[in-house]
Design a protein around this nucleic acid. Structure first.
Length: 425
RNA sequence: GUGGCCGUAGCUCACCUGGUAGAGCACCGGAUUGUGGCUCCGGAGGUAGCGGGUUCGAGCCCCGUCGGCCACCCCA
């Protein structure tokens, strides 16, 4: 084994996996297009300041997980750890905020974390963002669209929607103070991480996995009691719309998101089938982020899906996907004359039937070894060229699956013959 | 950043208390002078992650290091 390896947490996606990625991406593209969402392609690298200002200075992402480096001109750059910040930057910079916008993007994100199941250092997200609409019908649209995606992927029974409102920033501020006051009385009983977060990010204590901490939280003031009237009304309306659309949800009053820019609606789609990293899609509203990053005040809401996690879930759920590169026809050709004849005939065949998957054998070998390859390729048919076929201007067609004797046909009939087979299969 | 488990053939894994490597699958060839899938026969393939230590002798024990998996943390 060579000493040159892939970087830890940055894995290759091999053919066995890539067919799941293609399936997922195709479904997502079709769904987003059908709802009027347009794709944007964004840089992987942004100014470090963009992430510091949007994600939040005291978050783990900014404090210890970013891939930050100095450009040759001395500017501090960062490999994007998430997609929303760059998307917001792009809509501001390109003047897209005159009307409401429905956008999506996909690609790799980078966080320096310890790899585990469902967590890589280079991981992939598909993000969806909607700008310019403050009303909860937009929240409902995004959630309903994601629900429809699980339906289309065959994952609906494997995920559940958790929902919460974290209110306005003023409401959150008031709640934070009440929570800190309460928890301060139990400081000694809290786990070490929660004690630390008491100073840095008290709301995050709510979703601590520590049992003792959770017991203490049972008596804590509730975020819902601190919500401002508008947040309360919008959340109520959102649940009505979800009910109307027949989308089940559970309200999780402990659900808070890790990134600072969220307000009002936050939600997560979670699964129990993937171990510890069960969040497969998550998002929320961010009504002050655009202004915070220098754009004119514009509300926004969005979510991101973790592609690796969804692929794991597709596999865990036993969803069958077809291998896009599988051969339908494998061409066997033994000898130089046969290889030349095969090249000539296959060129015409590919012209006539561009969607037919044809693999021509390369590298020589006996009939026996080539037939073995044909079988292993998974192809439905073998096309066989040898000296006899060349001499007679014919080709042998043999079904590799199911019934049927092999037969010879004039090469001039090849296109018609396979056109029929292609439709049938 | 912390912890647990694990690194032996391309893959999945054996090798009882240390005596210097093996199976299945995959691959190549043959039985079948131009025909795959089943069967049989044969073959190739390994500096046991790497470095050090203990020992007459280490895949096995000890230390270090790198890597993988899972969990904490964090989050998609």
């Amino acid at each position: 084994m060579s000493s040159i390896r892939a970087i830890r947490g940055m894995s290759d996606i091999l053919p066995e996996e890539s067919c799941y990625w293609q399936f997922l991406e195709a479904q997502v593209r079709a769904l987003l297009a059908s709802h009027g969402y347009a794709e944007v392609r964004l840089p992987l690298v942004e100014l470090t300041a963009l992430f510091r200002r949007s994600i939040g200075e005291v978050t783990d992402i900014v404090e210890k997980e970013m891939y930050t480096f100095e450009d040759r001109n001395g500017e501090s750059l960062t490999l994007r750890p998430e997609g929303t910040a760059g998307c917001v930057r792009a809509v501001i910079q390109n003047g897209l905020l005159g009307t409401s916008q429905r956008l999506w993007y996909s690609g790799p994100m980078f966080r320096y974390e310890r790899p585990q199941k469902g967590r890589q250092r280079q991981f992939h997200q598909i993000g969806v963002e909607a700008f310019g609409v403050a009303t909860p019908d937009m929240d409902a649209e995004l959630i309903a669209m994601s629900a429809r995606l699980w339906q289309r992927l065959g994952l609906a029974s494997h995920v559940r929607l958790e929902l919460n409102s974290i209110g306005s920033s003023a409401a959150r501020q008031a709640y934070r103070e009440a929570l800190v006051t309460y928890l301060d009385g139990h400081r000694e009983a809290l786990d070490a991480d929660s004690q630390r977060r008491l100073e840095s990010n008290p709301l995050r204590i709510l979703d601590s996995k520590n049992p003792t901490t959770q017991e203490i939280l049972a008596g804590a003031p509730a975020l819902a009691d601190f919500l401002d009237g508008e947040s309360r009304a919008d959340f109520e309306r959102l649940t009505e719309l979800l009910d109307a659309a027949g989308i089940p949800y559970v309200i999780n009053p402990r659900l808070v998101r890790g990134l600072d820019y969220y307000n009002k609606t936050v939600f997560e789609w979670v699964t129990d089938s993937l171990g510890a990293q069960g969040t497969v899609c998550a998002g929320g509203r961010y009504d002050s982020l655009v202004e915070q990053l220098g754009g004119k005040p514009t509300p926004g809401i969005g979510f991101a899906m973790g592609v690796e996690r969804l692929v794991l879930l597709l596999q865990a759920a036993g969803i069958a996907v077809q291998d896009a590169a599988r051969a339908q026809v494998y061409a066997v050709c033994v000898g130089e004359a046969a290889t030349s004849a095969a090249f000539a005939s296959l060129a015409r065949l590919r012209d006539a039937l561009p969607d037919l998957h044809i693999v021509q054998h390369t590298g020589g070998g006996s009939f026996r070894s080539q037939m073995k390859r044909a079988d292993r390729s998974g192809a439905d048919y073998a096309l066989i060229w040898g000296d006899d076929e060349v001499a007679n201007g014919v080709v042998t067609l043999k079904a590799l699956r199911g019934e049927g004797e092999q037969r010879q046909l004039p090469v001039t009939q090849l296109v018609d013959e396979l056109a029929g087979l292609n439709r049938a299969s």
